[in-house]
Design a protein around this nucleic acid. Structure first.
Lengths: 128, 128
DNA sequence: TCATCGTATCATCAAACAATGATACGATGA
DNA sequence: TCATCGTATCATTGTTTGATGATACGATGA
């Protein structure tokens, strides 16, 4: 180890955080354990969708589950999960505006073909 | 503000980290500024792919660019970027194994249709 | 035992996205 | 000015993945 870092795992870990729905769930769980039904209410996500996200989060160790009666309560799996979220908040306070402008890989699909008539040749956007 | 958190931005931020190629690039930049060509060498990614990722990282504020002659040098945009990576490393040390096992949303596409003959009815995997 | 509630799983689909190959552009030196 | 190098952009393609709707399962109480 050491030489070949586990980029794959790291990517997976971050991907757990990289979805709006999952972030909403994680944020809700910051207050404390919640049953699935409650999470559904809070987030407005569908039951099935919520369950899928919870499974993902659970398998990745970001949250833990505990069954009580018919209910299953979820809670954050590690204190460092919160630390990650806080750090992200701080970063956003500074680079938030830039991220907002970041349209890379976003919306560029299809829209062109429909709007523009002539197949313009590599019309390059001015650097910077 | 305040009440409605910027989950969308947060998701975007994390998505910047959620790709193996981008993580390799970020890791390389931890040592110091690098020109694009050097990054291409180190990562083994194609030039065009590298450039795309760099643009994404740059627009999201994770890295910054500086032109010197014909070369463009990139460096990490903020000290907290490193902090994020470190924190991820720590987390992985603990939950790494679980993440490795996490196959959610992974590989489940298509493989079934080809292998399984009879369209099995909701064959449920045993809970836990 | 049965009806019901809470949750998990499955199949499918549409959108997002990373990678590629080709090409355009800017800076430098001959 | 021209050839070349280093980098950025574009169009396209195949894969990944979040959302949905239907359904299955387990636990509880009647």
């Amino acid at each position: 180890m050491g030489s070949k870092k586990t980029y794959h795992l790291q990517a997976k870990l971050f991907r757990g955080f990289s979805d709006e729905s999952r972030l909403v769930i994680l944020e809700a769980l910051r207050q404390g354990p919640l049953a699935v039904g409650r999470i559904v209410e809070i987030t407005g996500l569908s039951q099935s969708n919520t369950s899928n996200h919870l499974r993902c989060l659970s398998e990745c160790g970001l949250v833990s589950a505990e069954q009580r009666g018919r209910f299953v309560y979820y809670h954050l799996g590690d204190a460092r999960i919160e630390a990650m979220l806080r750090l992200a908040d701080e970063l956003l306070a500074d680079v938030g505006r830039r991220i907002y402008e970041c349209t890379n890989y976003r919306g560029a699909t299809g829209a062109n073909a429909a709007t523009s008539g002539p197949p313009k040749q590599h019309q390059r956007r001015r650097r910077q």
